[in-house]
Design a protein around this nucleic acid. Structure first.
Length: 512
RNA sequence: GCCUCGCUAGCUCAACUGGCAGAGCAACUGACUCUUAAUCAGUAGGUUCGGGGUUCGAGUCCCUGGCGGGGCACCA
């Protein structure tokens, strides 16, 4: 045992030694369970209520509380000590006195460290400086912490009540790699993930109320599709078959519409084997839904109602601060035609522009990598440069060129376009939906066009999915469908600058 | 994949044109029974991301590798 301790740094060694000392005193350093009567927050609330209704005893004590939590601060005064204990939702100050605890229990406090989990029991009171606290009559060690947490010192601004953290834990890499430590020392990070759960619950609630059925479709797929992206490739040993991790749920969900499950949705992890960025994690959460008998117009209305439901539920308001922007969600959101708005920006009808003029315009804007790009792709690129960044307030961009959308129905009024929308918020694409293509012959033709792109070297083009076409041949009712980038939406709701800040364990290169 | 910035004590950061690697917090010893960034006195703590090179001498300059942040590309 002693040999293990040799190579450790001083701070780790000291804690191991305290662990040994605890064992020698027959103090169990890793308890089995603990019954508490209050959380930190509920204890404070109880005391304040007792105080308000004048139910304190003559010593100023409210009821007795038993709290469990992690020690996050400590101030030793000799024969007394103050510390804060933090649980999932709050922190509370504990006051330890030698004359209350007795000599032995008080001296054992020396074996505690910041980061240890403890249970404490005692009456509640308010200190001279006004903080609601527990006067410890007994305490028990729940878990000894053998590694110091990067706890910053917390100052509460006397004027504003603001919480100021000194030093702390700032290294982004370390925070993502050791999310446990990040969460342990940053209540505001825990809050982001609480909001995340609330948002996903609210989304489910909304769709459930609209009569949708939540379903689960395969993650492991023999053919991938539903988006233009490179997949992760794996292999099933017993079947001796190549499998792909899904890049989208779309084709499976529409098979369910064919089968008569006329309103379905799935909250899914999708996987795309692409670069990483502030807006891209290789595995990410997508919400997709499909609703029979609707078109993209009705789906835009649904998206609006859904967003308002989520914001009302989670934020209690229809505005968000995202970075330097104030974003207001007041329906109906602006709707602009992709080609129409681009024509306006360029001062000339895009449909009338020859291919060469479009390419020239793209090059002028510094769009790289135009090699082999079709007309639709070039238009999309120019749009991305000129219009997209301005779409801060929620804006539906609608009616995309046909070649960009192999799964969307041709526009009923213009065969060059499709009935499709993308909703941009804060300059970022969050939703993508369309009137779903349900003509199996047209679908086959579009797949085959994709297949020839693929043969020409486009790794991201669709493969022909014969089984999906077979499903469409049985007949899919008119259907509107939508996909939502849940992580990106959460970036907006929680005002986080990177997708990694809303994903608990973002993808990183392995440490060794 | 490309550009760029970074990696120094457990944490947050210093260290000039190359010249003994430092501070605050945390830790340890001591004082202190209402403190709250507690305070006061003292002590210890380092593979400066790894490898190689230049130099009398490298945290610092050069080469190479690793990991990360930001940007770009990719992402219909």
């Amino acid at each position: 045992m002693a040999a293990d301790v040799e190579g450790l740094s001083q701070v780790l060694r000291v804690r191991r030694e305290k662990l040994e000392a605890l064992r020698e005193k027959a103090i169990q350093p890793f308890a089995y369970a603990f019954d508490r009567t209050h959380t930190a927050a509920s204890a404070v609330a109880d005391f304040e209520e007792a105080e308000a209704s004048e139910r304190l005893d003559e010593a100023g004590h409210g009821g007795t509380a038993t709290i469990g939590g992690r020690i996050v601060s400590w101030r030793d005064m000799g024969k007394s000590a103050f510390g804060h204990v933090e649980d999932a939702a709050g922190r509370i100050q504990i006051y330890f006195r030698k004359d209350v605890l007795g000599d032995e229990s008080f001296e054992d406090l020396e074996l505690l460290d910041l980061g240890d989990w403890v249970g404490v029991t005692g009456p509640m009171f308010r200190t001279r400086t006004g903080e609601v606290s527990v006067r410890a009559e007994s305490w028990t060690l729940l878990t000894k912490s053998l590694r110091p947490l990067p706890l910053g010192k917390v100052e509460t601004d006397a004027e504003t009540g603001e919480r100021i953290v000194h030093s702390g834990f700032a290294d982004q890499e370390a925070r993502y790699r050791q999310r446990y430590a990040d969460l342990a020392v940053h209540p505001e990070v825990r809050e982001v993930f609480r909001v995340r759960a609330q948002v996903i619950t609210a989304l489910r609630q909304f769709l459930d109320n609209e009569g949708f059925l939540e379903v689960e479709t395969p993650v492991l797929q023999p053919l991938y599709g539903g988006a233009a992206a490179e997949p992760f490739v794996t292999k099933h040993n017993a079947l001796d078959q190549t499998m792909y991790l899904r890049i989208a749920d779309e084709l499976y969900l529409k098979r369910l519409i064919v089968g008569g499950l006329d309103r379905v949705y799935e909250v899914s992890k999708d996987f795309r084997n692409e670069g990483l960025s502030r807006f891209h994690n290789p595995e990410f959460t997508m919400l997709e839904w499909y609703q029979a008998f609707t078109d993209y117009e009705q789906q835009m209305d649904l998206v609006e109602r859904m967003l308002l439901h989520v914001l009302d539920t989670v934020r209690g308001g229809r505005s968000l601060t995202y970075g330097e922007h104030e974003i207001h969600f007041e329906p109906p959101f602006r709707r602009i035609g992709l080609v129409a708005s681009l024509s306006e920006a360029l001062g000339t009808d895009v449909h009338e522009m020859p291919d060469e003029a479009l390419v020239a315009k793209a090059e002028e804007l510094g769009v790289p990598d135009l090699e082999g790009a079709g007309r639709g792709k070039v238009i999309d690129k120019i749009f991305g440069e000129l219009v997209e960044p301005q779409l801060v307030q929620p804006t539906f961009v609608i009616d995309h060129p046909k070649e960009l959308s192999p799964l969307a129905k041709e526009h009923r009024a213009d065969p060059r376009l499709t009935e499709r929308f993308e909703l941009y918020i804060g300059g970022v694409e969050i939703f993508n939906g369309f009137s779903e293509l349900n003509d199996p012959l047209d679908q086959r033709a579009r797949f085959e066009a994709q297949a020839s792109l693929r043969a020409a070297g486009d790794e991201e083009a669709h493969q022909v999915d014969e089984d999906y076409i077979r499903a469409l041949e049985y007949g899919m009712p008119p259907t509107g469908g939508v996909g939502m980038g849940v992580d990106r939406f959460l970036m907006m709701v929680t005002n986080q600058p990177s997708i990694r800040d809303v994903i608990l364990f973002p993808v990183l290169r392995s440490e060794d």
